[in-house]
Amino acid sequence: MVLHGSPPHEEAWKEGYNTAAMRTSVESALHAAADLDATEIIVSTIGPSIVLEGFVSRWGDSERALAIAEDIVGSGYVHCRLLVR
């Protein structure tokens, strides 16, 4: 999911775009994904990076959450610290 009309993450960070808006976009996309239970995923930011923390029920859910976040902010700007339980 890429937000139309928004610059790539690296350009957005340089231009001073609000990281809270990027965090909210990732949270919304995770909760909107029908194939992912994101109720225990916490999205935060560290500098220009998005951090995914919390718990998922399957390893595939961790990979799916990472893919969703990277679609929004770009590859290399997401740190996935999700644990499977």
Rank of each mutant, 00 (worst) to 15 (best):
M1A: 15
V2P: 09
L3Q: 11
L3K: 04
L3F: 07
L3A: 14
S6P: 06
P7L: 03
P7T: 09
P8Y: 11
P8A: 10
H9E: 04
H9R: 04
H9W: 03
E10H: 06
E11C: 02
A12T: 00
A12R: 01
W13V: 02
W13S: 03
K14C: 05
E15P: 05
E15V: 08
G16V: 02
G16A: 04
Y17S: 12
Y17I: 05
N18A: 08
N18C: 11
T19A: 02
A20F: 08
A20G: 12
A21L: 13
A21V: 11
A21Y: 05
M22Y: 02
R23F: 01
R23E: 00
E27I: 11
E27D: 10
E27Y: 10
E27V: 14
A29K: 12
A29T: 11
L30Q: 00
L30Y: 00
L30G: 01
L30V: 03
H31C: 06
H31D: 01
H31L: 08
H31P: 02
H31V: 08
H31N: 10
A32N: 12
A32Q: 12
A34H: 13
A34P: 11
A34R: 14
L36E: 00
T39S: 15
T39K: 12
T39Q: 14
T39V: 10
E40Q: 14
I41S: 02
I42R: 14
V43L: 00
V43T: 01
V43N: 00
S44M: 04
T45Y: 05
T45K: 10
G47A: 08
P48E: 03
P48R: 03
P48Q: 06
S49A: 15
S49N: 15
S49E: 11
S49P: 06
I50Q: 01
V51C: 05
L52A: 03
E53D: 10
G54Q: 04
F55E: 03
F55G: 03
V56A: 00
S57P: 06
R58M: 14
W59C: 08
D61R: 05
E63R: 13
E63S: 15
R64H: 10
R64N: 08
A65I: 13
A65M: 11
L66D: 13
L66H: 10
A67F: 07
A67E: 09
A67Q: 09
A69K: 01
E70F: 09
E70P: 09
D71I: 09
V73N: 00
V73Y: 00
G74V: 05
G74S: 12
S75W: 13
S75G: 13
G76F: 05
G76L: 04
V78E: 00
V78P: 01
H79G: 11
C80S: 13
C80Y: 07
R81N: 14
R81M: 11
L82M: 02
L83W: 09
L83Q: 12
V84Q: 00
V84G: 01
R85G: 04
R85H: 08
R85C: 08
